[in-house]
Design a protein around this nucleic acid. Structure first.
Lengths: 131, 131
DNA sequence: AATAGATTTATACTTATTCTAAATTGAAAT
DNA sequence: ATTTCAATTTAGAATAAGTATAAATCTATT
């Protein structure tokens, strides 16, 4: 019984997120909407992002920056941020189940999810650095 | 050559963080300072927290909430947040090196750090729920 | 006591996001 | 076709966390 009501605004926001190669912030989504000729209220973009994340069509990422980012990939995965250029890439290698089990034992929590943000230097910045 | 200049304010902020069982936000640190009879400017508390984190006397935690939290434990560890009551606990079981290596291979990043925030239900909330 | 550098203070500002009340839209019922 | 009602959008105000700024205060050294 999961009805999804994609209004014009929500569809347009969804399209922007899906068609972005990076992981745009709300402000970036807004800019890209304007580039496409839309002019929605700021609040609507936030509402739409929240709605889409709620329906699990997109994911909200909190990577430790001030602004949330959005990702159209909703399958289980993590993220890595380049310390030099700030780019964000997907990490598909799954967090080991065994580690989660150990953490459950250690903490006595029922563990549901792990959000991992890795930090490092991307291939591009690494080769630039070498000279 | 790492000189550390602990002014009255910085020392007091450091004391609050060290003597907190939980992981207080800046606002909570401020409240606890007031309870102890201090009345520092808001900016000073933020500056002190930044200074102490800089000198690695404390750590700033970004757990996906709106406000940062602060932790007097500076050794390598992760955190787990209870979805029910919001409490934050330490996770000392280290993230498997092997997983980090695999991620480095997958992403072609030079991986420096992993910040993990786990979510689940703490022992206390679990037992309350059962009854 | 005089100077300089660092720090603190009070306050203004910024950024990201949420809230609010009125206006608009759209589907269902008449 | 018109009314109706709920959901949505809009514009703008409000909030929350944190940073910036300029003046005042401390502190160590000459």
């Amino acid at each position: 019984m999961k009805t999804i009501n994609l209004t014009t605004q929500r569809q347009a926001v969804y399209d922007v997120v899906r068609q972005s190669e990076d992981h745009p912030t709300a402000a970036e989504v807004m800019n890209r909407l304007v580039e496409r000729g839309h002019s929605f209220a700021y609040g609507t973009v936030y509402n739409s992002l929240r709605y889409l994340a709620d329906k699990e069509l997109i994911r909200e990422l909190k990577l430790g920056e001030t602004a949330s980012r959005y990702d159209a990939r909703t399958d289980d995965h993590q993220h890595i941020v380049c310390e030099v250029c700030g780019r964000v890439d997907e990490v598909m290698t799954p967090v080991p189940e065994e580690w989660m089990t150990r953490v459950a034992e250690e903490t006595e929590y029922e563990v549901h999810e792990a959000h991992v943000v890795l930090e490092g230097v991307c291939a591009e910045c690494r080769s630039k650095r070498k000279r």
